[in-house]
């Protein structure tokens, strides 16, 4: 066995050709996570009937499942029924050949919703009760209080944690490789199937993730400063 840095370069180029997939997976799942997770957190904070109780039970449970199981279970649970349906329905036959990236997106977004809802919950809890009381004392409604006072303060707390969540999603998105999606890791590995230069391929993929995560970390610092200044 030897190590040849030329193959790192070859794999790096292959990995970068799939960069958009990794970016798409991590960014869309972060956004969807925020869209789904924030209302969940609000429901729990304000004890919205049924929704709060359901979330109290479900979120700790879902938080206990590793991301790879989200991917494997959803992959199976989506494709298997389609396989069965494909014999009778033409649309199912077409649908089962869909791009697996949708399955990856579904899995990552579900996972992200759970993580982000926890982030938003602790952010909401970080705002002192006195802030709500002050809002109500000057006659704001709960919605106004949230929008104008509570959320801006909660966001200042949430931004660095959300950036951390995002870094987790960038790294976590590599897991979709197990259901054969061509992301950065998949692209690098595809190039190694030809050359059998696996170590070089993994190093190339690692470099791409490293740059992405370091960039996100840097961005976090800038955002943090912006939000702390308010």
């Amino acid at each position: 066995m030897t190590f040849d840095s030329v193959y790192v370069w070859v794999s790096l180029k292959a990995a970068l050709r799939c960069l958009h997939v990794t970016l798409l997976l991590s960014i869309v799942s972060l956004v969807l996570g925020m869209v789904l997770g924030t209302p969940l957190a609000l429901c729990r904070k304000f004890r919205v009937r049924f929704a709060a109780q359901a979330a109290d039970v479900l979120i700790p449970v879902l938080k206990g499942i590793p991301l790879v199981l989200y991917v494997l279970i959803l992959n199976f649970a989506i494709l298997k029924p389609l396989d069965a349906l494909a014999e009778s329905c033409a649309w199912a036959d077409k649908l089962r050949l869909m791009d697996k990236i949708y399955i990856g997106l579904a899995a990552l977004s579900a996972y992200s919703a759970v993580i982000v809802s926890e982030t938003m919950r602790s952010a909401l809890n970080s705002v002192p009760e006195g802030q709500y009381e002050a809002c109500f004392s000057v006659g704001l409604t709960r919605g106004q209080a949230l929008r104008r006072v509570i959320m801006p303060q909660a966001l200042a707390f949430a931004v660095p944690v959300l950036c951390n969540n995002f870094i987790g999603l960038i790294k976590g998105s590599s897991i979709v490789y197990v259901i054969e999606i061509l992301d950065v890791l998949g692209g690098a590995m595809a190039s190694a199937q030809v050359s059998y230069r696996f170590l070089e391929a993994y190093i190339a993929a690692a470099l791409v993730y490293w740059v992405l995560c370091a960039g996100a970390g840097r961005g976090s610092k800038i955002l943090e400063k912006r939000f702390a200044g308010r």
Binding site: K171, W210, C213
Partner: peptide, 11 residues
């Protein structure tokens, strides 16, 4: 901290 553990394992 900036790379997936799955890649570290294979490296």
């Amino acid at each position: 901290r900036g790379t997936p553990v799955i890649i570290q394992m294979f490296i």
